[in-house]
Amino acid sequence: MAVVDVLNTKAEKVSEIELADYIFDVPAKSNVLHEVVRMQLACRRSGTASVKHRSDVKGSGRKLFRQKGTGRARRGDIKSPLLRGGGSVFGPDPRSYAYSVPKKVKKLALKMALSSKYRTNELVVLDNFDLDKIQTKKFIGIINQLNIKKALIVIDEKNEKLELSSRNVPNIKVMRYEGLNVYDILKYNHLVLLEPSIKSIEGRFVV
Score class of each variant (00 low, 15 high):
Asp77Cys: 11
Ile23Glu: 05
Gly87Phe: 04
Asn8Ile: 07
Arg167Cys: 05
Gly61Met: 09
Gln145Cys: 09
Leu126His: 08
Val182Asn: 00
Gly203Phe: 06
Ser46Val: 11
Leu82Val: 11
Lys106Asp: 00
Arg66Trp: 02
Ser100Thr: 13
Asn171Val: 03
Lys117Ser: 04
Val32Asp: 11
Lys79Glu: 03
Lys149Thr: 12
Leu64Trp: 07
Val36Trp: 04
Ile185Cys: 06
Asp127Lys: 15
Gly87Leu: 09
Glu18Arg: 13
Leu191Gly: 05
Leu152Glu: 07
Lys29Arg: 14
Val36Cys: 05
Val101Trp: 06
Leu186His: 05
Leu191Cys: 09
Val36Leu: 05
Ala20Trp: 02
Val105Asp: 01
Ile172Met: 07
Asp127Leu: 06
Val14Ala: 02
Ser30Gly: 12
Ala11Ser: 14
Lys111Glu: 02
Ser50Leu: 02
Leu152Pro: 01
Ala73His: 10
Leu83Glu: 06
Ala49Glu: 12
Glu35Lys: 14
Ile201Lys: 04
Phe129Asp: 01
Ser100Gly: 03
Lys137Trp: 01
Asn144Thr: 04
Ile142Glu: 05
Asn147Ala: 13
Ser100Leu: 04
Leu180Cys: 05
Val169Asn: 01
Arg38Trp: 13
Asp132Met: 09
Lys149Gln: 13
Val124Trp: 07
Glu12Asp: 12
Ser100Lys: 14
Ser30Glu: 15
Leu83Val: 08
Gly141Leu: 08
Lys63Ile: 12
Phe129Gln: 02
Leu7Asp: 03
Ala151Cys: 07
Ala113Val: 07
Ser96Val: 08
Gln40Gly: 00
Asn147Val: 06
Asn171Gln: 13
Pro81Trp: 03
Leu164Phe: 14
Thr9Tyr: 06
Val206Ser: 15
Leu110Cys: 01
Ser200Ala: 15
Gly61Ser: 11
Pro27Asn: 03
Ser197Phe: 06
Asp127Gln: 14
Tyr22Arg: 10
Ser197Met: 08
Asp56Cys: 05
Ser55Thr: 13
Asp156Leu: 00
Lys111Gln: 11
Gly71Cys: 06
Leu193Ala: 08
Leu146Val: 00
Asn189Gly: 01
Ile143Arg: 10
His53Tyr: 08
Leu162Val: 09
Ser55Ile: 10
Ala11Pro: 01
Glu12His: 08
Gly87Trp: 06
Asp77Ala: 13
Arg62Asp: 07
Val4Lys: 13
Val125Cys: 08
Leu146Asp: 06
Arg84Pro: 04
Ser100Met: 06
Val182Glu: 00
Lys52Gly: 03
Asp156His: 12
Leu194Asp: 02
Thr136Tyr: 06
Gly87Met: 09
Leu164Tyr: 13
Arg66Thr: 13
Asn189Ala: 12
Ser55Asp: 11
Ile155Thr: 13
Asp5Glu: 13
His34Lys: 13
Ile78Gly: 01
Lys199Glu: 14
Lys173Gly: 00
Phe65Arg: 15
Lys29Glu: 14
Ser96Gln: 12
Val174Met: 02
Leu131Glu: 04
Arg54Ile: 09
Asn189Gln: 15
Arg66His: 11
Leu64Glu: 05
Lys161Asn: 09
Phe90Tyr: 11
Val174Asn: 00
Asn168Trp: 04
Leu193Met: 07
Lys58Asp: 03
Gly141Thr: 07
Ser197Pro: 04
